[in-house]
Design a protein around this nucleic acid. Structure first.
Lengths: 245, 245
DNA sequence: CCATAACATGTGACATGCTACTCACGCTCG
DNA sequence: CGAGCGTGAGTAGCATGTCACATGTTATGG
C-alpha cells in the first residue's frame, strides 16, 4: 500500500521537509516542551502567547492543544487558558500498568515474527543509544529509547499498538537531566535493551517477554524515584524556545 | 447530484445542559455518524459541507475531524477532503487483540476491587440491555454494552484504561442492524454479560477473566461475520490475540 | 481522434475578527 | 480599616476571510 512513487527522474523533491502542517509541527513542539518541562505543569498558558512564541497564528496552536488535551497532557479552561496537567505518581503507575499489559505480550509475539531487517534496525538504534550513555545526553537517549520500543511494537504486527503505547509514553514527563540522567541509570537501561535484543535474536519469546517486563518495571522505578512528587521547578531553564524549526 | 444525503446529521439537542463546546458536540455527532454508517467509509467529505449539515461554522467541524483523525477514523487529504477510513477485518483483529490484552486482566482486577455500588450500577445497565434484546434495537443495545465495559474498566482502578479501550471501540463500525442485530446474537451477548456479572459477584477473578475473554472472542467473531466488506485483502491474516498469559 | 494546456471549481490550511465570559485589581462606601 | 463592587484586561470559542493547490472540465493543437 505504501507504494512506490519512486519516479526515476524524481525532480528535486523538497527533501528535508515533508509536507507537514503547522498544526503537526506545533503539536510536536509543544508536546516536547511539556515533556521536558519548558512548559511547566500546573501553569496556565494562552493560545495567543504560545502562537507568538512559535511565530504562527492562533489556529494551529489551538488545534495542537486540542490534540494534546485529548491525549491528557493539557486541559482547556474556558476563558482562562490551557493548563498543563501534572503527572502524579499515580498517573505513572497507571501508564506502566498498561504498558506492561501491552508491551510484554507484544515483545513475546515480536520474537516469533521479527525478521532480519527489523533486527538490524534495532541494532542500529541500540548503537546510537550507546553513544548517549557516555555523554549523558538524556534527551537524545530517550528519543532512541522511544524508537527502539516503536520498532519492537511494530514488529509484533499490530500497528494500532504502536500508537496506543506511544500515546501512553507521552504522558510521562521526565524531570531535569539531574534525575534520571545519571550515567549509571542510562547504562543500566541500555543494558536492558541489549538483553531484549539478544533474546529476540535467539528467538526466545519467553526470554524476550521477561526482559521487557524487567525493563519496564525498572524504568518505572527510576521515574518514580526521580519524581519528588511535584514542583521540582528546574532552575535556569530558558522560558521557551524560539519558534518551530 | 449525489442524490443521497437524506440524513440531516442533525447534532442532537444537547441533553442535560452541560456546558459543552460545539467542537465536542460535533465530535460526538460525526463519530456516531461514522460508526453507524451515515457517513460512509471510503468517502470524501468536506468540512464546509459537514458544517452546513451541522449548522455550525467550519471551525468546530474541522477541530472535530482533527480529533477523529488522531483517533484513526478519518484522514485529511489536502485540498480533497476528509476521507472516512474503512475498517478492514485486519483492523478489527488488531482492536480485539488489544482489547483482550487489556480487558481480560482488567476484569480479573475488577473482581478484586469492585464494590457494592459498582455492582449495582452494572446490574442496572444489564437490565437496560435486556430491554433492547427483545426489540432488537441494536443501537441502544450497543450503547449499554459500551457503558457496561466502561464501568467494569473503571472498577479496575485505572482511569486511563477506560479512555484507551473506548478509543479502540470507536474504531469498530458495526454495519446495518441486519447483521449483528439478530435477536439471537443480542441475546447471546447479553447472556455473556450476565455471566461476567455473576462471576464478579462471586468474587472469582479467574472466572471473570474467562468470561470476559469468551465474550470478546465471541463479539469479534460476530463482527467479523457481519462484515461483508471483504474487498479481497480482508481475511487471511491471523490476529495475534488470545496468547496472553 | 488523441494529447496537452488553460481554466474553473472546490478544498484544506491558516490568519484574523468578534463576542461572551472570567478574574484580578483598585476604587468607593460603610 | 475593611468589605463590596465595578471595570478593564485577557481569554477561549466560534465565525469568517484569504490563499495555494489538487482535480475535473473544456479549449486547443497535432
Amino acid at each position: 500500500m505504501t507504494g512506490g512513487d519512486e519516479h526515476p527522474l524524481a525532480l528535486g523533491a523538497l527533501d528535508g521537509g515533508e509536507r507537514q502542517t503547522l498544526t503537526d509541527r506545533a503539536t510536536v513542539a509543544i508536546r516536547a516542551a511539556i515533556v521536558d518541562g519548558r512548559l511547566r505543569a500546573g501553569e496556565l498558558y494562552s493560545v495567543a502567547r504560545l502562537a507568538e512564541r512559535l511565530e504562527v497564528s492562533r489556529t494551529p496552536v489551538r488545534e495542537a492543544l486540542l490534540l494534546l488535551e485529548r491525549q491528557g497532557m493539557v486541559r482547556f479552561e474556558r476563558n482562562r487558558g490551557a493548563r498543563v496537567l501534572k503527572s502524579s505518581a499515580h498517573d505513572l503507575d497507571e501508564v506502566f500498568a498498561l504498558r506492561l499489559l501491552l508491551e510484554v505480550p507484544a515483545a513475546r509475539r515480536a520474537a516469533e515474527l521479527i525478521g532480519a531487517h527489523e533486527l538490524e534496525q534495532l541494532a542500529e538504534v541500540l548503537a546510537a543509544m550507546r553513544e548517549h550513555v557516555g555523554d549523558a545526553d538524556e534527551r537524545a537517549f530517550m528519543a532512541h529509547d522511544r524508537r527502539f520500543h516503536e520498532l519492537l511494537l511494530a514488529a509484533a504486527g499490530n500497528r494500532r499498538l504502536v500508537g496506543v503505547v506511544g500515546s501512553l509514553r507521552d504522558f510521562v514527563r521526565f524531570r531535569g537531566a539531574s534525575t534520571v540522567g545519571r550515567g549509571r541509570d542510562l547504562s543500566a537501561i541500555y543494558e536492558e535493551h541489549v538483553r531484549i535484543l539478544d533474546a529476540l535474536r535467539a528467538g526466545d519469546p519467553a526470554a524476550v517477554g521477561a526482559a521487557m517486563r524487567d525493563h519496564l518495571v525498572h524504568t518505572r522505578e527510576l521515574l518514580l524515584a526521580a519524581d519528588p512528587a511535584g514542583d521540582g521547578e528546574a532552575a535556569g531553564e530558558p522560558p521557551w524556545p524560539a519558534r518551530l524549526s
